[in-house]
């Protein structure tokens, strides 16, 4: 199979939600910024950056949570020369790269129009891309490992959504201590300690790598994947 055909196939198997989620999330975030009635450009810029830091990771996280348990005849996948977990890793990559393309394009538009710079804690146009990259990869990894453990997109999606909502509703409490601050997803738009930003972004990426490795270990036990998902 030609590589491009393969990747196109994996994109289809990742599902519509993985493809539609990030652009829909950006559209909703931009709409929220447009209808916001609070005075000041900084508030509007914060909501626009929030679309990248909050909405895109949620869409990507739920997309990644829905990768395991989608194949109707997983026995065929397990019998193929390519290990199934490599196939799932490719779908994870497709989901995250697509979210990154959407977020990167949105960020470029925000930088070009000057809205990026209007949020004081923006961390510049280059390192600032970690605004969306770190939480997207972090929440994506949470979704992937939850999907691998539960084998149920419903449970994994519920867990990703709950973690995301927790950090939204308890922003201050979640960042009270250093470990919580390091793993806080929305440090650019809601982080009270700007000095922790770089550490936070790197910690999220590190945690994501660890979680994906854990998911691959869980997925190596292929007999767990046979049979219907946890209905």
């Amino acid at each position: 199979m030609r590589p491009l055909t393969l990747w196109r196939y994996e994109a289809r198997r990742a599902g519509w939600a993985a493809l539609l989620g990030p652009p829909v999330a950006v559209a909703l975030g931009v709409s929220a910024a447009l209808v916001n009635t609070m005075p000041g450009d900084a508030t509007k810029a914060r909501i626009l950056l929030g679309a990248l830091e909050m909405a895109v990771p949620l869409a990507a996280g739920v997309g990644c949570a829905s990768l395991v348990g989608r194949d109707p005849a997983v026995e065929l996948q397990l019998a193929a020369p390519t290990p199934y977990r490599v196939t799932l890793l490719r779908r994870l990559a497709v989901t995250l790269v697509w979210a990154a393309m959407v977020a990167g394009l949105t960020a470029a538009v925000l930088i070009a129009t000057g809205w990026w710079a209007r949020w004081p804690a923006n961390h510049g146009p280059f390192a600032g891309q970690l605004t969306w990259a770190a939480p997207t990869v972090g929440l994506g990894a949470v979704g992937f490992v939850a999907g691998a453990v539960f084998r149920s997109p419903a449970a994994a999606g519920a867990l990703v959504s709950t973690v995301w909502t927790f950090q939204q509703l308890f922003a201050d409490l979640a960042q009270e201590h250093l470990p919580g601050r390091l793993l806080y997803l929305f440090a650019t738009t809601r982080g009270p300690v700007p000095g922790d930003w770089t550490g936070n972004r790197l910690a999220l990426l590190g945690a994501a790598a660890t979680l994906v490795a854990l998911a691959l270990v869980v997925l190596a036990r292929s007999e767990r994947l046979i049979g219907e998902e946890d209905e």
Binding site: G15, W16, A17, A18, L20, G21, V24, A25, L28, A55, L58, A59, V62, G63, A65, S66, P153, A154, G157, A158, S161, W164, T165
Partner: peptide, 13 residues
Amino acid sequence: PAPLFRVFFVGYW
């Protein structure tokens, strides 16, 4: 798709 509903639902909530 159900995953897309989950994203909408959390945003709505």
